[in-house]
Design a protein around this nucleic acid. Structure first.
Lengths: 363, 363
DNA sequence: GGCGACTGTCGAATCAATTCGAAAGGTCTG
DNA sequence: CAGACCTTTCGAATTGATTCGACAGTCGCC
């Protein structure tokens, strides 16, 4: 045997574990009494409670998570499953992580991060070994193999995003399709008839990530239904990517007077490049974005936007999951409604030639 | 009792757990044999191994994490402890999370995220209840109460950052002080004598976050030692914050010709605002940044920078922790060396008045 | 004063694994 | 051919908690 395992001192740095038996001995009661004090599952006299609690505090006792889970079938841990993708684009995800982290802490849960590079192994392992009580699936794709997996695992789960076939699993989402449509309608109402949609990196669409497709299709369909010329372009997370996408849109349709941007990363550069290319916003081109409110606040000028409630989304998902784990009946679908906030980057269309050079009143 | 707990079907969505006993029965061997097949701790005949493995696969067996941890004292989970801070600044952290996530997966570990709003409860709970095998401490402060806690918990730990008193705990860090000094020396060698340091948000310094202080002090000390005028300013994550910080630096010392920027978020805006304020880079003002390489790639122009190896840092920390958990003896300190990469935003100082208006050759 | 109804506490079973000691069976050696 | 030895497998103890059933002790009520 490589490691000796004596009763008194365990290995190198590991702390000596204090068990419920130690507490019982210290308090002069039985183990079960300590357990009942902890769980409150049976009435215990006030003085015994006090005695036990003093011992717990004195010994710094904390019940062993594994031992507990073996009986209760609960671990108090939920998993956040992210697909493995690298690159700067992923910075957008941190707010989700933060929100999920704080929300789960408030719900008394711990958050385990999972990536599933090789498909679904990480999820299968974590759930199969009863490491987690539930799974929150991020970056849901339109046809996501993980959805089928989760359903077959029969563990509490919530999808953050809307797959083509949720297969009975509950999902929480922001209504990206409606969000895209709101952008479109805003521009249509302002008189724009030629609109470009500048979206996420091509890879995101290639993977069929649901929200990206929904936002784009929601916008384009609304535009085309109302007779506008609509076009779209993916946008890579680099200055050249932004320039390239803008140029492509403007070359394919030089009449483009409205731009819907759903690419948080690119947004600052879009405004910058448009002016660099000689287009004034909103006089020549109106810009409406889909992005979190704090992204707008960080821009040099306030952009008309449909605000993306990242924090509420993650929080809702965690709360939903917490409820499902407790056995509460949960709504199968939760859709957060988009709302468009007009700000400085959109204006009525007829720009110059329209009814004489009567000036360009911004409002 | 609210929830009945029968032997056959458990509650609502929970999967029926398959145990090692089921596998043993299915394979026609004893439980211990299955365990030995799993762990390889005793020699088992090839045919028995095959038989058992077939049963494991057929039943989709995965050992119960809790039950396993109760005996082995291991969970295969490590914690990443982040202090609870919100706001856009935190986007910088996602690369750390990603790197730690992939690295821990490669090391066969799972990653639990912890925040410690109310001090250290989350860490204490996770370690005390034996939920995690080790802790990776992020955003280490110069005087960090969590360091003392971790030491007293006697569990494998690694600090990502250098506190004033590591108290015997191993730490991994990027040499921010030297990084700051390299920036300073680069500017000094180019002839700059008046340099401003534009740093992290004020809150970060107020909290005494180690890396922020180290980078700033490393730069300022090097500058002052060599007789340069050096000043610094915190910078909030907003356009106004950037403008304000720049203005403050330039007003306090109008002769400022060199700028060290250690604020990944602000970097694009700094370049933008400098030109907006009428300073050409690098003709009027040289800019050198401390930031990850991919942040440079995303800028419209290549910025001279000391590259911040975020991914290597997180990866090193995870590997260190994995080793410590396995009982390997680890180096107490790992410092990643900074390297300055001159690019387009720094130039020799004597700008105009120096030796006649002989033109400004960029190189 | 005896009987049922509570209260509070305990002992023992249970959960799903790991692991030690021993036993069964086979091979090799003296 | 008996004894030593090795390989392979098993039974049972162990790990740290939860929880059921039982058992004293107290109280109130007729």
């Amino acid at each position: 045997m490589l490691r000796s395992r004596s009763r008194i001192s365990s290995k190198v740095g590991a702390a000596v574990a204090v068990t419920i038996a130690d507490v019982a001995r210290h308090a002069g009661v039985s183990r079960s009494t300590v357990s009942y004090v902890l769980s409150g599952n049976r009435s215990i006299s006030a003085e015994t409670i006090a005695k036990v609690e003093r011992s717990i505090a004195a010994l710094q006792f904390r019940p062993h998570a594994g031992a507990r889970s073996i009986r209760t079938g609960r671990t108090g841990v939920i998993a956040m499953a992210l697909p493995m993708l690298h690159g700067p684009h992923n910075q957008v995800q941190m707010p989700y992580v933060w929100a999920a982290l704080t929300a789960s802490q408030e719900a008394g849960l711990k958050l385990l991060m999972l990536t599933d590079d090789d498909g679904e192994t990480a999820i299968r392992d974590a759930v199969g070994s009863a490491l987690v009580d539930g799974v929150m699936l991020m970056e849901v794709q339109r046809r996501d193999p993980r959805v089928g997996l989760l359903r077959s695992l029969k563990c509490p789960a919530v999808l953050v995003g809307t797959p083509d076939d949720p297969g009975g699993l509950p999902y929480v989402d922001f209504d990206f399709a409606l969000g895209g449509r709101l952008c479109a309608e805003h521009l249509l109402e302002l008189g724009h008839t030629d609109v470009g949609f500048l979206g996420q990196p091509a890879e995101t669409y290639r993977r069929g990530v649901a929200y990206a497709a929904h936002a784009r299709d929601g916008a384009l369909e609304a535009l085309r239904q109302r007779g506008a010329r609509a076009d779209w372009e993916a946008c890579e997370p680099s200055p050249d990517g932004v320039s390239g996408a803008l140029r492509a849109l403007l070359e394919r349709n030089p009449a483009t007077s409205g731009l819907i941007v759903y690419n948080e990363w690119a947004l600052p550069l879009v405004l910058d490049r448009l002016t660099a290319l000689g287009h004034r916003v909103p006089r020549d081109i109106s810009v409406v974005a889909i992005c979190p409110d704090d992204a707008v606040d960080q821009l040099p000028r306030p952009v008309t936007s449909v605000s993306l409630p990242v924090e509420a989304l993650a929080r809702t998902a965690v709360e939903h999951l917490a409820g499902a784990i407790n056995g509460d009946r949960q709504a199968p679908v939760t859709m957060l409604a988009p709302r468009l906030r007009p700000r400085d980057t959109t204006a009525a269309y007829p720009r110059r030639r329209a009814r004489g050079a009567r000036g360009n009143v911004p409002r």
